[in-house]
Design a protein around this nucleic acid. Structure first.
Lengths: 93, 93
DNA sequence: TAGCTATTTAGCCAACTAGCTAAATTATAA
DNA sequence: TTATAATTTAGCTAGTTGGCTAAATAGCTA
């Protein structure tokens, strides 16, 4: 839980999640969207992975990351419960 | 936005918000729920206040803090939009 | 095997964070 | 005005974070 919050508190990592929301991507592909170096992004990946927000699988020489949507949804739900917020009020209309 | 995320990423501050969810409280009253010193809590209050998550008003010699529920709800909504999550799926049943 | 690509690990640094104690501030009470 | 209570500010320390470069690892390909 705390790991997930910490992982979400960084803007770079949130953007990574947004990118993966569209489709699975390799580490290098994701890194292409940022100005930081690959080692820097690599560490962000490991933080996200430790929080179980993404999952990487090796495909021969590349690693493809995929978003763990369920964990993201569960975290938001947990937050709403923690603060006693009514989901009905979250509707965006 | 980033300030709000950072403010929410600390467990002590989340617990402060939870306490204020129940009712308004003075700084000292809130501090009574924690093992940390008052100066430490005081700084947490200022972080929460800068993120606009709480608001303090002076009552003679005490300061009463109150939760800004709207900002909390808006932040969660923004997160859900950011990650394209359907509010319907957040229902807790 | 040697070389190339993709990715991570190691090691360093500057900036930030959360905790503490001591001191300053502000208001009330004697 | 002196003392007490509530709270914050200042200044310090230890630990964490995010960035970088250089080196290591793993898988291909010639």
């Amino acid at each position: 839980m705390q790991k997930t919050f910490k992982a979400l508190s960084d803007p770079t990592r949130r953007k990574v999640l947004q990118l993966l929301r569209e489709r699975d991507m390799t580490a290098g592909e994701i890194a292409g969207y940022f100005n930081s170096t690959k080692p820097t992004l690599s560490r962000h990946f490991s933080v996200l992975q430790e929080a179980d927000l993404i999952q990487g699988t090796k495909n021969s020489s590349t690693i493809t990351y995929r978003l763990n949507v369920t964990v993201l949804e569960e975290t938001l739900l947990a937050m709403m419960e923690m603060f006693n917020i009514d989901p009905e009020r979250m509707k965006n209309d």
